[in-house]
């Protein structure tokens, strides 16, 4: 671990100011990922700016009937919040599919968006990794890449984003509120995380000195027909090989609105408006879901060990959409797949 300075931000403006003057400073809230990375010498911040006490813990209704969630709301509090359970159960389910109870208690919503890939090479400072040390090369390309991305990869990086929560947020059309040195801005969650292209060291579009202040959920919650299905190598406490967030609005058996996002397959939650548009007006049948899966997985490429993910994702998409259709969402406590 590196030596670092510690500052306690007095308010958001102070956090922005502290960040802006020291490009190698990092914000810390729950620390569930950052501290691990510091212990492995992967992250070597010069300064930790503690924001954990700032007043960003509210969950409140917005004027248009959505919800605004403060960036420091713990993952557990969010998953078990009555308004989330009732109106956005897809989000609650995705959060509970991730990590462990202890980690969810510590992890903040903003921190969840900022967690870094679990690529083994990223974690091991003795191996080349473009994300950790730009220009050194990607060890995963021809290495142990069973857990790696099949969509949106580049020759510089095939890492995945490990978040479950973000996959549900992408499907729900969430917005990210950001404050920075030049004022506030709002971006769609699907635009918040980047594809690796030739700059895999950049996970998000967050600029220098910028701070996530809140997540906003639009009014539409898909509380009836939804499911989050996470496929992994053991039945709990493992990152997704493939995960699917699916949400539908149905008129009879016809799809009037569809949302579909994938986790574990790309550098960001993978969602396609085109695929969702194609589902609209269709009957909710395995065939149509299979077509949607094929469309969403178009361009998927396999590396030496992760080719299985393409077929697995296809099957998981169909299954999750069927779970959503029948209003029998995947339970995160009982591990039998509905």
């Amino acid at each position: 671990m590196n030596n670092f300075q510690y500052s306690r931000a007095s308010d958001i403006a102070d956090a922005i100011r502290l960040l802006a003057v020291d490009p190698s400073a990092k914000l810390i809230a729950g620390g569930t990922n950052l501290i691990d990375l510091m212990k492995e010498n992967v992250e070597r911040p010069s300064r930790l700016i503690d924001i954990s006490h700032l007043p960003l813990r509210d969950i409140e209704e917005t004027a248009d009937g959505g919800l605004r969630i403060g960036a420091l709301v713990p993952n557990s509090d969010l998953a078990y919040h009555p308004m989330i359970e009732q109106r956005y159960p897809l989000l609650a389910s995705a959060i509970l599919a991730g990590a462990s109870a202890q980690l969810r208690n510590m992890a903040s919503v903003g921190g969840n968006l900022m967690q870094r890939t679990r690529c083994a090479y990223f974690y091991d400072t003795a191996t080349p990794c473009n994300k950790r040390s730009p220009g050194t090369g990607c060890s995963a390309l021809d290495g142990l890449n069973r857990n790696h991305a099949i969509l949106g990869t580049s020759r510089f990086c095939i890492a995945t984003n490990p978040s479950d929560m973000s996959v549900a947020l992408a499907a729900l059309g969430a917005l990210v509120h950001i404050a920075g040195p030049t004022g506030a801005r709002t971006v769609a969650l699907t635009d918040f995380h980047r594809l690796p292209d030739d700059k895999p060291h950049l996970d998000t579009i967050l600029g220098s000195g910028e701070v996530i202040t809140a997540i906003e959920l639009p009014p539409r919650g898909f509380a009836r027909n939804y499911s989050y299905l996470k496929i992994r190598d053991r039945l709990s406490y493992a990152f997704a090989l493939v995960s699917v967030a699916a949400a539908l609005e149905l008129e009879g058996n016809a799809i009037s609105e569809a949302r579909l996002a994938l986790g574990g397959v790309a550098h960001k939650p993978w969602r396609s408006l085109e695929v969702e548009a194609a589902l609209r007006g269709q009957a909710a049948t395995p065939d149509h879901f299979g077509h949607a899966a094929d469309l969403l997985l178009q361009g998927a490429t396999a590396h030496s060990h992760n080719g299985f993910k393409i077929e697995l994702a296809r099957r998981a998409i169909v299954r999750t959409l069927m779970q959503a259709t029948s209003a029998t969402p995947q339970s995160q406590s009982h591990k039998k797949i509905a």
Partner: peptide, 19 residues
Amino acid sequence: RFGRIMNANIAEYHIPVNA
């Protein structure tokens, strides 16, 4: 290629959990 163990931690070296 490196002669290194790449899952040298109990997050990535999987053993059964309660579930």
